[in-house]
C-alpha cells in the first residue's frame, strides 16, 4: 500500500507542488520559446516526457551499479549529459527507421531536448532522491521512473496552461516597452503564483 501511495504522491508533487518549470525553474527556455501555439507546446512536452523517462531508466542503474560501485560519483555530470545526448540521437534514428509517423510529429523536438536543463536536472534530482541505499534497487528504480514521468507531466501541464495564456495575450494592447519577452515573463509570474496555491496539497 505504501508503494502505491508513494507513487501517487510523487506524481502529484511533480505536477502541482514541485512543478519543474514554475517552481524549480528548469526548462525555462522551451517554456518561453515553444509555448506560443498549443500544438507545438504539446509536441515538445510529449518529447520531453518520453526522453525524461528514458533517460532516467538508463542513468539510474548506471549511477547505482557503475558510478557508485567504482567511486566515480564526481563524473556524474559528464556521464549523464553524454548519455542524454547519445540517447536522444539513438531515439531519433530508431524512430525515423521504424515509426516514421511518430518521428514526423516528435522528431523536430528531439534534438532540442539535449540541452534542456529539465532533462539533466530530472536525472540528477531523481538519483539524489531515490538513489540512496535506503531504497532497494527495484523499489528505488520504480519510484525514480514514476517521478520522472510525473515531472514530465508537470512540464506538459505548465506548457498547456501557458500556451492558453499567451493566446489570450496576443489580443491585448501591451505597452511598447513590455512587448515581447517582458510581458511573457510577467504572465509566467502570474501562472506561477497560481501554482503556489497548491503548496501543502501533497
Amino acid at each position: 500500500m505504501t508503494f502505491v501511495k508513494t507513487i501517487v504522491t510523487v506524481i502529484l508533487a511533480g505536477i502541482l507542488t514541485d512543478n519543474y518549470v514554475l517552481s524549480k525553474f528548469l526548462g525555462i527556455c522551451p517554456f518561453l520559446g515553444v509555448s506560443k501555439k498549443l500544438d507545438t507546446a504539446m509536441g515538445m512536452s510529449a518529447a520531453v516526457i518520453f526522453v525524461m523517462v528514458l533517460a532516467t531508466a538508463v542513468t539510474y542503474p548506471i549511477q547505482r551499479f557503475v558510478l557508485e560501485q567504482l567511486g566515480l560519483e564526481y563524473l556524474q555530470t559528464v556521464v549523464f549529459i553524454l548519455i542524454i545526448a547519445a540517447l536522444v540521437q539513438l531515439v531519433e534514428i530508431v524512430l525515423k527507421k521504424h515509426m516514421p509517423a511518430l518521428h514526423a510529429s516528435l522528431g523536430v523536438y528531439l534534438p532540442l531536448i539535449t540541452t534542456n536543463c529539465a532533462v539533466l536536472g530530472c536525472t540528477i534530482l531523481v538519483t539524489e532522491d531515490f538513489g540512496s541505499a535506503s531504497y532497494g534497487f527495484g523499489e528505488g528504480y520504480c519510484y525514480a521512473l514514476f517521478c520522472a514521468f510525473g515531472s514530465g507531466l508537470g512540464f506538459l501541464v505548465a506548457m498547456a496552461i501557458f500556451a492558453g495564456v499567451r493566446k489570450r495575450m496576443e489580443l491585448c494592447d501591451i505597452p511598447e516597452t513590455l512587448q515581447g519577452l517582458p510581458i511573457t515573463l510577467i504572465a509566467a509570474s502570474l501562472v506561477a503564483m497560481s501554482f503556489l496555491g497548491f503548496a501543502g496539497v501533497v
Binding site: L178, I186, S189, A192
Partner: peptide, 24 residues
Amino acid sequence: FFSLAPGGFFVFGMLMAAANRLSR
C-alpha cells in the same frame, strides 16, 4: 512574493523591460 518563484519571473520581466527601454 519576491523570494518565491513568481517574484523571480516578475523581476526578470521588469528588468528586461528596463533594458529594452534604455537600449531603444
